[in-house]
Design a protein around this nucleic acid. Structure first.
Lengths: 131, 131
DNA sequence: CCATTAATTGAGACTTCGTTCAACTATCTG
DNA sequence: CAGATAGTTGAACGAAGTCTCAATTAATGG
């Protein structure tokens, strides 16, 4: 930490030609302001984590593409895990707010939430962003 | 698999009142078409994985917020890992196409790519999607 | 009310991640 | 060229994640 400050000081000296204590402090302040504006980082990391697994990602995308509720038994035809694995995956997606479940007699149906639709839409698009 | 087909068959019988073999086949076909349209799933899972960690996510967001190159030494002031950990994180982000690095004398500077800007922008927004 | 089926839960095995430590490369400065 | 500094690399280890198995709950139908 003190170590880090020293390095930034030398960097600024290099960049600015000269450098006072105040400059280092100001720059570190700016950097911390940037970081502080990131209060929701944890929430969004959890969101990403939910999609950072092929089973879950496929489930979400199928549900988004379907645009309607699908039965667990139908989802089982789409991913290659046991019933148990499927259930664990769906429950993780519910926790992340990407999917909602509804029990219907002896069947259970899941559908994508608005958030899931928004996210998947953008992820699809982002891959083709030119740079 | 054969097990899954049986269950879907019973489900469709339940939903439709009756059900022929052809109906099951058709439904399974539809589901597989949905899944097949997801060819890029792996790529996007990797994208999400890159952001599914607080260190990396913070780095990307700081770089996006900064809107300019930042020196590794400056980034070190923002996340709480060793130099080595920071370097590993940045290299993972480069692999994911979210960040680009440039060597400048004895310093190294990183900046966010367009893809990173697009993704972060949407993730910021998605959290406030009402449902 | 017993058997069957849909789905979930928890425990445990196995894998993948994230971080640090130590060693290394490259650049600058005297 | 010697010493210091910026940053990277690879090995290693603990933590977290993902899957399966076995047991369990809940709904249905004879």
């Amino acid at each position: 930490m003190a170590e880090t400050q020293e390095r930034v000081r030398r960097y600024l000296e290099d960049e600015l030609g000269s450098c006072r204590e105040a400059d280092v402090d100001e720059r570190l302040g700016e950097l911390n302001d940037l970081a502080d504006a990131l209060g929701t980082a944890t929430v969004e990391t959890e969101l990403d984590s939910a999609l950072a697994n092929e089973t879950r990602y496929t489930l979400v995308r199928v549900l988004v593409a379907a645009g309607e509720e699908l039965c667990v038994c139908e989802l089982g035809a789409v991913v290659d895990v046991t019933d148990s694995g499927l259930s664990h995956a769906l429950s993780a997606l519910v926790d992340a707010g990407l999917v909602e479940g509804r029990k219907d007699g002896r069947w259970k149906k899941y559908r994508a939430t608005n958030r899931a639709v928004a996210l998947v839409t953008v992820l699809d698009g982002s891959v083709t962003v030119d740079e």
